[in-house]
Amino acid sequence: MDSLVVLVLCLSCLLLLSLWRQSSGRGKLPPGPTPLPVIGNILQIGIKDISKSLTNLSKVYGPVFTLYFGLKPIVVLHGYEAVKEALIDLGEEFSGRGIFPLAERANRGFGIVFSNGKKWKEIRRFSLMTLRNFGMGKRSIEDRVQEEARCLVEELRKTKASPCDPTFILGCAPCNVICSIIFHKRFDYKDQQFLNLMEKLNENIKILSSPWIQICNNFSPIIDYFPGTHNKLLKNVAFMKSYILEKVKEHQESMDMNNPQDFIDCFLMKMEKEKHNQPSEFTIESLENTAVDLFGAGTETTSTTLRYALLLLLKHPEVTAKVQEEIERVIGRNRSPCMQDRSHMPYTDAVVHEVQRYIDLLPTSLPHAVTCDIKFRNYLIPKGTTILISLTSVLHDNKEFPNPEMFDPHHFLDEGGNFKKSKYFMPFSAGKRICVGEALAGMELFLFLTSILQNFNLKSLVDPKNLDTTPVVNGFASVPPFYQLCFIPV
């Protein structure tokens, strides 16, 4: 009986604490739906499609509103004006990374994606500088992407125009580009180590996009005490870190300090320079996690976009025909596509942009946080508050993009057929937390897609009208449904 009384008292205290925290903070924060004790607004949000729920709530509470995930307040920004004001106009104040408990377990605050403060700034600055020195957006990395595009075309030829699921092959190409940047090595598509790495990356994007992960991140005790797919994700990350550590040891034994070959060499050189400046942010643990982040951000996002792009091109054969006509006119058949071609191919450029806009790969991006107490639109948001960005509300804005739910390359073309930029184009987020590999991803999408369409016609196994382009999961990332196609050599 005594234990029951204690339990009831504990629960009562928890409920009172929950109510007090919510009521004391709500006077400062933007308005929002009334949260339930302990669980907050979790029942009012469709976990399978958070973005749709945010759109519905914005119609009631406006472009800036507050939700509670458990006891934790989260300020939501919906629509271009609110997102721009926060991420661009007040970029420094909104540059923090929001709480992501599962990532905390995986990387302990290291790396480039989930770190904060001085650690994040130094690692991000170093990573950007190193990638630029190796030619991100310049010639040397373009050579690597072109080489991988040629290998991709050869792998597709091996399908002999038979029906195939493109998931694996389209994942190999961007993964190999990242391998060449980090390890100075590309792998054969049949290499077992490479296959294991690909498998872990593919599993992780599916797990991260599941409703279960949303629950884990908002009720963090689940991570330590409950079984579930989150444990598989943590094991996959541990596998990748151990693999990278092996490569780091190989580099330490063979590195030429006067001739760095890749990202690992550059990081080890930085560690050597910083060894007298303790404590340094440049450690082996930081290198492991930064490399894992580059793999995660640079492989599955690009391969998922490529997979979605081919599905949309199957669905819209008239678009595919126009792209192939432009390829034939500008590039021809006797040389590989290059980035200089893009400025002469406005329709193809528009298609690449429209694919990214339409699929809305990361509907709410990753959570941000404010780095200080900030007054925002007459609300006071306390330091450390998590900020949720609705990228969907920007990419699918119906004023900027008429009929935003329709796939239409003319969203990025003017009346004369010239490519038209849009400030609403934010597939990689915006501001200080914009994806480090934005330029690389854009290069890969253009070169891989043009190389495929230069060499193959795409054949659907069903009537294009019957192809479903609805994402199968739409949590962290929008993942396309399973499909097969035939690559018919031109």
Results as ranks from 00 to 15, higher is better:
R307C: 06
M406C: 15
F126Y: 11
Y61Q: 02
F187H: 07
S390T: 02
L19S: 04
N41A: 01
Y424N: 11
C338K: 14
Q193A: 13
A106D: 09
T364I: 14
L15N: 01
F282R: 03
A430L: 06
L362R: 09
W20S: 02
V145F: 00
S23E: 05
H184K: 15
P35V: 07
I123Y: 10
R108I: 11
V330D: 01
L445A: 07
S242G: 13
I207A: 06
S115W: 05
E92N: 11
D188Y: 08
G27W: 12
I88N: 08
G111K: 06
D191W: 00
I264K: 03
Y225Q: 06
L314D: 01
E415A: 15
R97M: 07
K72T: 08
N258S: 14
P367D: 02
D262R: 03
G228T: 05
W20D: 00
I45N: 02
T305W: 05
N41C: 03
T229N: 15
F100K: 05
L388P: 00
Y68E: 03
N218L: 13
S23G: 13
T371G: 10
G296A: 15
F376K: 01
R335G: 04
I141E: 03
P35M: 04
R150S: 09
A477D: 06
Y347S: 00
T283Y: 05
Q484K: 13
L15A: 09
H344G: 10
V237Q: 14
L43P: 15
R26S: 13
L313T: 03
H276E: 08
M339K: 04
E285D: 14
D373Y: 01
R157P: 01
H230D: 03
N403E: 13
V60L: 08
N403V: 06
P30A: 02
T301E: 12
P464M: 06
S336R: 11
I205S: 14
V75L: 04
D188F: 04
K423E: 11
G442T: 05
S336L: 12
P33M: 01
F456P: 01
T469V: 06
G416A: 15
P37R: 01
S280E: 07
L485K: 00
Q454V: 03
T348N: 01
L43F: 13
L195F: 06
K121D: 08
F226L: 15
L395T: 10
D2K: 02
Q324K: 11
S460V: 02
G442C: 07
Y68S: 05
I387D: 00
D397Q: 04
C175F: 15
F487G: 00
P471C: 10
E285Y: 03
R97V: 05
L11S: 06
C372S: 15
V177H: 00
D349S: 11
F110A: 09
L128R: 13
E122S: 14
F114G: 12
G417A: 09
I205L: 10
V479P: 03
Y189Q: 03
N202S: 12
H368T: 14
M240S: 03
G46L: 03
K84D: 04
E288G: 13
G384V: 00
P211V: 10
V490L: 14
A106K: 09
P409T: 04
G475V: 06
L54P: 01
S24F: 09
R329G: 08
R342M: 14
V330Y: 07
R144A: 13
S343L: 15
C216K: 06
A82E: 04
E92P: 07
T34W: 13
S343T: 08
G135E: 12
K383A: 11
L313S: 03
I45T: 13
M406N: 14
E281A: 11
K138H: 11
I264L: 10
F100V: 11
K241C: 04
Q278P: 14
G109I: 09
A309T: 08
C435V: 03
N107V: 05
D191P: 01
N133F: 11
F412V: 01
L156Y: 01
L388S: 04
T159L: 13
R21Q: 12
V330L: 04
S478M: 08
I215M: 15
P260T: 13
E250L: 09
V177Y: 00
R186W: 00
N474S: 14
T450M: 02
R329P: 01
A297T: 06
T299D: 01
K28G: 12
F194Y: 11
R335L: 03
R105A: 09
R329Q: 14
I222Q: 03
N204K: 03
N289K: 06
L170V: 07
N133V: 06
P211A: 07
H316R: 06
K59R: 11
E405D: 07
S162K: 14
T305Y: 06
F187C: 07
L54S: 03
S127A: 13
Y61P: 00
E203H: 06
Q278E: 14
Y68F: 10
I47A: 11
P33G: 00
K48P: 11
K315V: 03
I223R: 07
N258K: 15
L440T: 03
G137K: 13
F263W: 06
L170E: 01
F401G: 04
G442E: 15
R157D: 05
E122Y: 06
V8K: 00
C216L: 15
F412S: 01
F412P: 00
L11W: 13
V490A: 14
D262P: 02
H368M: 09
Y68V: 03
L467D: 00
M129I: 13
L54T: 02
R342K: 07
N259R: 13
Q252G: 07
I222K: 04
G296F: 15
D191F: 01
H344L: 09
C338T: 13
S3E: 12
K459M: 05
M345W: 01
I99V: 14
I327L: 07
L9N: 00
N403R: 12
V370Q: 04
E93M: 07
L131W: 05
H410A: 11
P227I: 10
R307P: 02
R21Y: 10
S365R: 05
I331S: 05
D49R: 05
V355L: 07
F187D: 00
L366V: 12
M406P: 05
